[in-house]
Design a protein around this nucleic acid. Sequence first.
DNA 1: AATGCGGGGAA
DNA 2: TTCCCAGCATT
Length: 359
Amino acid sequence: MRGVKIKNDDFKRIQDSLIFWYQINKRNLPWRQTNDAYCIWLSEIILQQTRVNQGLPYYVAFVETFPTLSHFANASLNQILKLWQGLGYYSRARNMHEAAKQLIHNGGVFPADYNALLKIKGIGSYTAAAIASFAFNLPHAVVDGNVYRVLSRYFGIGTPINSAVGKKQFAELAQRMLPGQNSATYNQAIMELGALICKPEQANCKHCPLQLGCYANATKQLNLLPVKTAAKPVKKRYMYFVLFHDNERLYLKQRTDKDIWQNLYVLPYIETATQQPIDKILESKFLKEFMEQHDVTVTVHEKTITHKLTHQHLITQFVNCRVKKLPANNNYKLSNSRQLNNYAVPRLIEKYLTEQGWL
DNA sequence: AATGCGGGGAA
DNA sequence: TTCCCAGCATT
C-alpha cells in the first residue's frame, strides 16, 4: 500500500465528483424523502448490517404501523419483535424499544447533537453521525462498510478496518473529507457509491466517478482492499425441535438466555454437543416421558436442516409429536394457529411451521 | 481487543 | 460455497 499522503486540494474534486454522480444515479428510497429524526433513526437501525433490499419492506411496514416515536414507544416489545421477525439481529428491536420509551420519557424529541445521540441505546458512532447528518444537517461523517471500502481502495489504505487503529484512522479521514456545504448529500453519496459501484466484489470501476486517482484501480488491487483481520471459524450446534401438538394447539417456548434469538419463541428442543441419530433423541428423557404418558403419533422429518447464521451453523432436525389432546404445561405456552401470528419466531421455525400448515 | 448477534443476496 | 451487508453492546 502506498503511504497515505492526501492533499486538501484533492478533496474538493472528490466531493464534487461524488455529489454530481449521486444526483444522477441515486436510488429513490423512502428515508431519503424525509428529515424526520424518528424515520431516519428507524431506517438507520434497520439498515445496520442489512442490505437495502432486505430492509426496505420492513421500513415501510414499521412506518405504517408506528408512524411516530410515541406509537413505537407505546407498542409492546412482542408486537415490535413480530414485525421485526425475519430481519435478524433482534437486539436492535429490543434496544430501539428501550430507547423509544426513554426518549418519550424525556420529552419525545431526538437530541440534535452527536454525543447525545451516541448515548442512546443501540446508537453507535455510525448511526449517531447518520442521524446528526440526515435529520439535523450537522457536519458529521458517516463511516460504514461502504465508506471503509471506498476510502481504503481510493487511497490505498491497508490498515485493517476492524482494528482499533483502523477505525480511528478511517474516521479521521472521513471527517476530513466531509465538505462544509452539502455534508448530508456527500454522506449519502459516498455510501451510495460503495453500494452501487465500489462493490465488495466486481467493482464497476468503468463507471466510477473516482476512477482517476483511485489507488486500487490503478494497481488492480480491488480484491485486496479493504483489509480485514480473519474471522473466527463458525461454531456448529445440534438442535432437535419437537412440534408437540394436537392439531389444534402446540407448545412454544420463549427464549430468554443471552444467546441467539433472545425474546423470540421456538418449539421445545434439546441441544446436544455432537450430532445424534434421531432414534437416540426419541429415546431421550425429554421425549420418552412424554411418549409414555400420552398416546403419541410420531413423525420424524428425516432430513436434517442446516440453518446458517453468520457465526454459527445450526444442524437441526424436526420431530412431529401429535397427541389427542395437548395438556397445559408449566414450561411451555400453548398456542393455536391464530395466536401464533402474535409470536415472533426465527426463520427456521417459521419455515417449518409454514410447511406443517400452522402459519 | 475480542466476542456474539440473523438472515439473505450475489458471484 | 464464500463474502458481507447504512453496526452495536458486552466483556
